[in-house]
């Protein structure tokens, strides 16, 4: 019993020192708090000019096969609520003839047990949960994503040596 108490006292002590150091390590230096605003916290900076959404109608490459493709056109004013799904007025199977838009893939007609439904699956109703239009903007945070083709290539290259 006594040893147990001692052990728990030690672990509490160890844990709290760990917490303390990690807090200091993770805390952001003061001069870096405002990096996104680019101005001290008590100053109202001029907002950057608003960017127009890309509307080139040229499909973007997907970064991996399961990625929801990004939207290559603007979606301003497209009503998407319980009454209307403007997206489906072009992307539904029976609309693609008129709209010449790609049909939502068959996964959009499947429920979670992989049964095919006649109608759009409710879990795919709100398109903008997964699909978003793009800006031609500078990255706020550096992106070090590596395409898996590069990974596989690098891997086979390494195995050769």
């Amino acid at each position: 019993m006594k040893t147990f108490k001692l052990v728990s006292a030690f672990s509490v002590l160890a844990f709290s020192t760990l917490m303390m150091t990690s807090v200091t390590a993770a805390s952001i230096p003061e001069d870096r708090i405002d990096t996104l605003r680019q101005a001290p916290i008590n100053v109202e900076p001029n907002p950057p000019a608003m960017q127009a959404v890309l509307n080139k109608d040229i499909k973007e490459m997907r970064n991996y096969p399961m990625q929801p493709p990004v939207i290559p056109h603007k979606i301003d004013g497209y009503q998407l609520d319980l009454k209307v799904n403007k997206c489906m007025s072009c992307h539904a199977r029976h609309r693609t003839g008129d709209s010449q838009a790609p049909m939502v893939s068959v996964t959009h007609y499947m429920d979670r047990d992989n049964n095919f439904l006649a109608e759009l699956s409710p879990r795919r109703y709100f398109c903008t949960q997964c699909h978003v239009p793009q800006l031609d903007a500078k990255l706020l945070v550096e992106n070090d994503f590596v395409d898996m083709d590069h990974l596989i290539k690098a891997n086979t290259e390494q195995n050769k040596h």
């Binding site: 004013g77 009503q79 009454k83 209307v84 403007k86 489906m88 007025s89 609309r95 008129d98």
Partner: peptide, 16 residues
Amino acid sequence: KGIAHHLPDMAGVEGF
């Protein structure tokens, strides 16, 4: 349709 106001329930309207 619906360029100036919200749309009503469009079930059955041609083009939706």
